[in-house]
Design a protein around this nucleic acid. Structure first.
Lengths: 338, 338
DNA sequence: TAATCTAGTGTAATCGATTACAAAATAAAA
DNA sequence: TTTTATTTTGTAATCGATTACACTAGATTA
């Protein structure tokens, strides 16, 4: 392995001078610098980052903890993170928890062991005091999620208001029996979406029926299963608002499996606007999150934290948008009951 | 920050002893070890990995270079990699190239700078001599891709034979005018799939028509566009074999857009078996790759390389499988021409 | 009893860079 | 020409762990 001392020897200078050439800092005579650069090229020298990092006590690496890397929602955010990371010479250490709480916890140690300068969490199911604690010691940014009553910097959309908007859209189409497929209740964003749903309903004086609200886990499979349950009710909903696109698609499959049609028989709204939402048939009406931008912003904030810059605020709310495609329709006229 | 010397001081021992307790190596008296452990707990000490890594000249980190992290095909492989990584106390440094050759090249430096102990490439579009070079210096494993005439360890399916199988399946359904949507020709796996397609055709004495073969880039969009082109031919194909599921789905969308039906008018076979292949309607008949296993195996090989173990062989071929779903059907009887 | 071995611990070198400080060389000012 | 300022370079400490080597004390063997 080629070390800085090898370069120094070949160029007939001290390691300090080589280092100065490397970092472009300080005063090095032109000719000396040229000698050094030549030696570097000749030896194909690459500085050992471990040594540099140890000396500088920084890694130029950020840890990104993702609940499920195979979900395109998260990988799109990751893309945004990575873009800003590259622009600022940071590397991304990936922590996929596979929805395991234990693994989520385990990744905190990587930060403590200085393997990364900071951390972006796309999931926050850990006990909040753990997160609070580590965020006091190290730079931490939450994306999508946030922590109630905490001042950990956060980038997300306003889940409550976007869920309310989506609900009101269904109401505006004449729907009153609206089902709600929720995400897991231990994540705040699920609770927010539910809250938004309830707000929308109440604002139009529509009673909320508990058995039209079902808790799932954002997955396709849970969407399918919960919708099947809803369809088994004596009076199934005429519209359903799902807390993720995957669930929405699962729900549509369940509806189709019963021989019913979307949107003719039942309207569906999803959440996220993953790539597949527009490819699926019928194309999904959904709340579109600016995933790439969320990632970018989160990484920008993290870099600021690492550099100990002051943030203007700790909660950044990005704009979402209700994208209307093909899965919603005016409620059918009630049949005259016999 | 708590250092090993702080622990040593508190426990009234030398740093060497603390280190020995930490690594569970060597001979430390029980009582001493207990004292040390107590101090560690009291101070909430976590060893600085940078220092350890510098001393040991290893990072316990592997670099995974992915062409597109938002493609579930790759993220599934990544899952396999990460699983084995965790089991062996490795971390995964993610390098998403966004299909950029330049960024692919840039990630090689991370390896040279010792930020990772080895590298798994899920893309190999770089000039082969670059790859050869770096693989002589550092542990490198190719997954999915391989390099002709190179001995870089590789994990993949046999693309030629699986493409041949899929082609023969279409032929067995009576199709003769079979279109082929290829991936980019600068990746070997695209060329292999084309080769397999041609083999299948020739083995059944079916002439290969150049304008039924179209080159894309694995993406949904290219599938749509190329299929649109094929449909514009005076005599369009009755079946199409796409080199990726995304392309296949794009092709189906194009067919539907023309008012035709899959599989009634045109049969489609995809490649990869991404999650969405079974959700899409009609559910995709496709060549299923064992993505998770590819990732696992690749990581296992890489660990062996890092530990300087001998590999039994350098090319590992895993089993693929033609999954028959709903997008293929017997060719319609020819209309009697007037 | 003396010699040898072993367990347990400490001292200090080491990994490969960066950088504070000192020193030398050169330029500018008196 | 001497003095002072500036530029350029080198020496050695440093980052925080690991580990080769040395040492001590007690156990074992001859």
């Amino acid at each position: 392995m080629v070390r800085i001392s090898d370069v120094a020897k070949m160029a007939n200078v001290s390691t300090a001078t080589v280092s100065r050439v490397l970092s472009n800092s300080g005063n090095v005579k032109k000719e000396t610098a040229e000698k050094v650069l030549e030696a570097i090229k000749k030896l194909n020298y690459q500085p050992n980052l471990l040594a540099r990092q140890l000396r500088r006590l920084e890694t130029k690496t950020v840890l990104v903890v993702v609940p499920d890397i195979t979900n395109t929602f998260f990988s799109k955010i990751l893309r945004g993170i990575e873009q800003v990371a590259i622009e600022n010479d940071y590397e991304v250490l990936l922590g996929d928890t596979g929805n395991s709480l234990e693994r989520e916890k385990g990744y905190l140690d990587i930060l403590r062991q200085k393997k990364a300068d900071g951390m972006i969490l796309l999931t926050a199911r850990l006990e909040s005091h753990l997160l609070e604690e580590i965020s006091h010691e190290f730079p931490v940014v939450l994306a999508c999620e946030y922590l109630e009553g905490s001042d950990i910097p956060t980038v997300s959309i306003d889940n409550i208001s976007s869920a309310r908007k989506a609900t009101e859209y269904l109401i505006s189409l004449g729907h009153k029996r609206i089902g709600f497929l929720s995400g897991p209740m231990d994540v705040i964003l699920s609770r927010d979406r539910l809250k938004g749903f309830k707000q929308g309903m109440m604002q139009h004086d529509i009673a909320i029926e508990p058995n039209l609200i079902q808790e799932g886990d954002f997955s396709f499979e849970s969407g399918f299963n919960l919708m099947t349950k809803l369809l088994a009710l004596t009076e199934p909903p005429t519209a359903v608002f799902a807390s993720s696109d995957e669930m929405a698609i699962g729900a549509i499959k369940a509806i189709k499996a019963k021989g019913l049609k979307v949107p003719d028989d039942i309207s569906i709204v999803g959440f996220d606007d993953i790539k597949f939402a527009s490819i699926f048939e019928p194309a999904l009406t959904t709340v579109s999150q600016p995933m790439f931008e969320i990632g970018q912003k989160a990484m920008e904030l993290l870099i600021k934290l690492i550099q100990k810059d002051k943030l203007e605020k700790s909660q950044y709310i990005l704009e979402d948008q209700l994208v209307i495609r093909e899965t919603c329709k005016e409620k059918k006229k009630d049949m005259i009951k016999m």
